[in-house]
Write a protein that binds this DNA or RNA. Sequence first.
DNA 1: TACTGTGACTAAACCGGTTCACTAAACCGG
DNA 2: CCGGTTTAGTGAACCGGTTTAGTCACAGTA
Lengths: 369, 369
Amino acid sequence: MERRRSRPRIADVAREAGVSKTAVSFAFNSPERLSTETALRIREVAGALGYRPNPVARMLTQRQTMTLGVLTPQALAVIFSNPFFALFSEGVAHAAEDLGYELHFISPLHGSLALAVGRSTVDGVVAIGLSADHPEVEQIRGAGLPMVLVDSDDLPEHSSVVVDDEAGARAAAEHILSLGHRDLLVIAVERPASEGPADGSGVSGEPRRNGVTERRLRGYRAALLAAGGDLPDDRIVAGRSSIDGGSSAFQRAWAMGLRPTAVLAMSDAIAIGAMRAARDLGLRIPDDLSVVGFDDIDLAAHVDPPLTTVHQPIRQKGADAVRLLLAEVEQREAHRPEHIRLETRLIVRGSTAPVPAARLKVGSEFPGT
Amino acid sequence: MERRRSRPRIADVAREAGVSKTAVSFAFNSPERLSTETALRIREVAGALGYRPNPVARMLTQRQTMTLGVLTPQALAVIFSNPFFALFSEGVAHAAEDLGYELHFISPLHGSLALAVGRSTVDGVVAIGLSADHPEVEQIRGAGLPMVLVDSDDLPEHSSVVVDDEAGARAAAEHILSLGHRDLLVIAVERPASEGPADGSGVSGEPRRNGVTERRLRGYRAALLAAGGDLPDDRIVAGRSSIDGGSSAFQRAWAMGLRPTAVLAMSDAIAIGAMRAARDLGLRIPDDLSVVGFDDIDLAAHVDPPLTTVHQPIRQKGADAVRLLLAEVEQREAHRPEHIRLETRLIVRGSTAPVPAARLKVGSEFPGT
DNA sequence: TACTGTGACTAAACCGGTTCACTAAACCGG
DNA sequence: CCGGTTTAGTGAACCGGTTTAGTCACAGTA
C-alpha cells in the first residue's frame, strides 16, 4: 500500500465522493448549486481526507491574492526596530484586517528591492518613505500594480498620503523661538547607505534628500526667517533615526564646538537620544537644553522629562493609505488618484523651557546678526 | 486596435519572439539551455513588452512559495506595538532575508486564526506564543505544514525554541531576595481576551496559562521557597504586556492595599509601566521600590533609572527558529525535530537596591511566617 | 404526445507558468 | 560516411483549482 505523502487534491476528494471536481468546488464555494445532501457528503469526505483547497491555485484562477504589500526601501530588520514604522504598520494592519486582506512586507531581498517586488504576490502596494524618483516606483507602475505612496512627493498618477510636515516643523521652531532660544541645532535623519552614491562617499551624517526631510527643513527655516534669523548648514547634523543615532549626532555636534540652547530633532527617537547624550555631558533638560521631537510615538510621553514634540497621526496614515489602495484595487477602472494631507499638532510637554538666563543675549538677537 | 489591458503572459512573449513558451521559460530560468543570442533576444522582447513572470503561477508549478509565515494568536496591530515582538521579528526577518525567503505575518483574520492559516501561502510557519494545545497547532499539523514552535511547551513532533524562563525568573527573584526584600509583587502577563473562556468571564487580570508565564512563575517560586518564603496568589496580579498595562496593574495592586518593596515583572514593558505608576504615587525608584523586568528590550537601558532585568536573546530566538524551520522545509524527508533552549542572564542596572531601612523587618523574615 | 423548464451535476477549457520526453540538426572521431 | 553524442529547441502534460457551457432526468404544461 503506497503512502500518499502529499496533501489530497480536489481530484482525490472528487473520486472518493464519487462526484466531479466541479461538484467539490461547488460544495465549498457555491453550495446552493448542489443538493443539500450532496454538498454535505462532499464536505464530509473532504474533512475526512484532510482536504484544504490550495490557496495558490485559487489565487491563480481568481487572479487576485487578497494580499496587500507594504513596501519599504529598508531591510525588515531595520524597520521593526523603528517605533514610527511599528505605529504605521499598526494602522495598515488594522485597516487590512478589517477588509479581509492579508499583509505582506516587501523589503530588499539580497539587497534588491526590484527582486522582492518581482517575487511578491500582492494585489497592491503601500510604499512608505520611497522617494518619488526611486526606480522601483517606475517598476511597479510598469507592472500595472496599484500603489499608494506615503510620505513621498506627490505623483499625479498615484494616490498618496502625507502629513503637513512643513507646518509641523514650523510650529516646533516657533515654539522654541517664543521661549527665547536663538542658538539652535537641527538633527535630521541621515540618508541610509543604500540610498547613497555608489562610491559610498558622503553617506554618513548627510541629511536625507527625500521629501520629508526637505519639507521639515523648510518649516524650520520659515519660522527662523520670520523671526529674523536663518539656519546655516553648520547648524544641521544628521543621524540614524534611532536613540543611538540621536545620541551620537548630538555628541558629534558638541565635539564640533556647538553649544545650542535648543535642539530640533526630526524624529522622537533622535530627540530621546539627544537628551541622553546631553545629560551624559552634564546638561539638565529642559533647564540647560530644550529638545523638540517629531512624530509623537508612544514613548515620547513616557521619557523623563516627557518630550515636547510634533504629533502626526501615524496610525491614521497607514489606515488611510490602505483605504485609498483598496479603492483602486477593487474597482480598477475609472479610478482617479486621491491625495490626502493630514495635519500635525505641536504637543508641549516637559522637555522645553525658556532659554537659560546665562545664555540670554541682549535683545534676543541671533548670533552673528 | 484593441488595447490589451492585462499584463503580457508568457505566450505573448513566445509569439512575439517566434519561439515556444518553453524557450521563454528557459531564457529566464536556465539560459544555458538556449543559444546565447536566442536567450538574449527573448529577454529583449520580454523587456519591451514589460513581461514579468507571474509569481503565483510559478509558485503553483514549483509547489513552493519561498515564503515563511510568522504565526501569532494576536492581531497584527497588537503585535507591532509590542517591542518584544519587534525584536523577535527582527531576528526572523534577518535570517529569512539571508536565506532568500519572504515573510508573511499570519494573524487572526476576522477573528479567526484558522481562516488566516487556510488562506496563507507559505512553505512553513514559525509560531510564537501559541500554547501547545491551541487548536491551530493541530490544524497546521493536519495540513502537513512544517512548523517551529517558539515559547511554547515542547511538542515532540515539532522543532522548538525556548529560553530558560525558569532559571531567568529564579535569578531575578534571588537578586531581589539577596537585597533583603521579602515583600514582593509579581506582575504577570494577562491572558488576552481571545484566549479567554467563551463567556468572557475572568478575562482581565487573570494570568495567562501558557508555558512562558507558568515557567517564570515556577522560577520565582523556586527562589522564594529556597529562601523559606512562598508566593501566595494574592501577590500575583496580571496586566497587558505594555507600559500602560504595567502601570494599571501596579495601581490596582496598590488600591488593593499591597505595599511591596519590590516588583517582579514578567516583561520590561510591564516593569516600566509599574515604575511610572509607582513614581506617580510618590515612590522613589530604587530607594522605595525595586523593580526587575524580563526580556531586556532596547528601551530597558534607556529609561530612568535603567531597568534591572533578565536578558533573553530575543533576536537569536527568531533567527534560530527560522534556521530550524528551513532545515525541515528544505529536506522534508528524514528530518528529526530539534529542540533549542537558550540561556537567560540577569542584568543588574539601577532599578534595584537594598530594601529600605524603614521596611526592614527583624531577621528579614517573610511577612506572616 | 410533444414541448419547455428546472434542478443536479459534469466535461472540458482555462489561469500562467514549468518540465518531461522527444526531435532535428550540427558536430565529431575513426 | 557512419554511428553516437551534443546542442537548441519544441509540444504536450502538468500544477490544483474555478468557471463556462453543456447534458440528462424529470416535472409541468398545452
